[in-house]
């Protein structure tokens, strides 16, 4: 490090640090801590679903309700949006503004497709009389999957906002930092979705 050493009259060395600590670094750590606290929210919702997930109140069970083909397509959408966001980050590191915007746009389309399919699924469940008020299982299901969907919704809004920012101001250090934060957020939501499709859908249908 670029610290200067000066000797005091009493012989003890004193160090002066020439530079500030990098504020970007603390942003990333702080954002990571936020994600971890978000992870705890999801853990509690998963635990709730784990406890209530078999209480059907004589209503429909996951095997009656869930269409695994739809869930598979949904999973593919989110997975594809993760890799396209990764490509956007690679273009950002190359300083290619236009390519970054294109990949961010593709990511947004996949995110929107995911949300559309999820809303379609919710709509049909409610239409069939399997809304969140039907049974404890459905209450916990809608809370858990709905919270994840809400996160994806806000992630998409954030993504669009950042695309406008990058378009107007370019890949400035501030925008890079924001894109890094959204990158962590987006990949984190994909990690949560792994838990959702494994624990809620697949184990639910398995019975």
């Amino acid at each position: 490090m670029s610290a200067t050493q000066v000797h005091n009259p009493d012989g003890k060395p004193v160090f002066y640090l020439k530079e500030d600590h990098h504020p970007e670094n603390s942003t990333m750590l702080g954002f990571w801590l936020y994600l971890m606290s978000d992870c705890l929210i999801f853990a509690v919702l998963f635990a709730t679903h784990g406890v209530l997930g078999r209480n059907y109140a004589a209503g429909p069970s996951p095997a009656d309700l869930f269409d695994l083909n739809l869930v598979a397509i949904n999973t593919a959408m989110l997975l594809l949006s993760s890799i396209t966001y990764g490509f956007a980050m690679l273009q950002m590191e190359r300083n290619a503004k236009m390519e970054t915007l294109v990949w961010l746009g593709i990511t947004g389309i996949f995110g929107a497709a995911f949300l559309g399919l999820e809303l379609y699924e919710f709509y049909h469940l409610i239409l069939e009389g399997a809304g969140p008020t039907r049974s404890a299982f459905l209450s916990s299901f809608f809370t858990l999957v709905g919270t994840h969907g809400l996160h994806v919704t806000f992630g998409t809004i954030w993504l669009i906002t950042l695309m406008v920012q990058v378009k107007k101001r370019g890949l400035t250090p501030e925008n890079r930092r924001r894109l890094m934060c959204l990158s962590m957020f987006w990949h984190f939501l994909d990690v949560i979705w792994i838990g959702v499709f494994s624990f809620v859908y697949l184990l639910g249908v398995l019975g």
């Binding site: 990098h22 670094n25 690679l90 890079r176 962590m184 499709f197």
Partner: peptide, 29 residues
């Protein structure tokens, strides 16, 4: 240093992760 927190990805790294996660998604389904 502006990219330190999330680290640096490479094309290869992303593709390895992508292929692995396709396989690991397909098997349970």
């Amino acid at each position: 240093s502006d990219g330190h927190g999330a680290g640096h990805g490479s094309f290869r790294g992303y593709m390895i992760g992508f292929v692995l996660s396709i396989i690991l998604t397909a098997i349970p389904f």
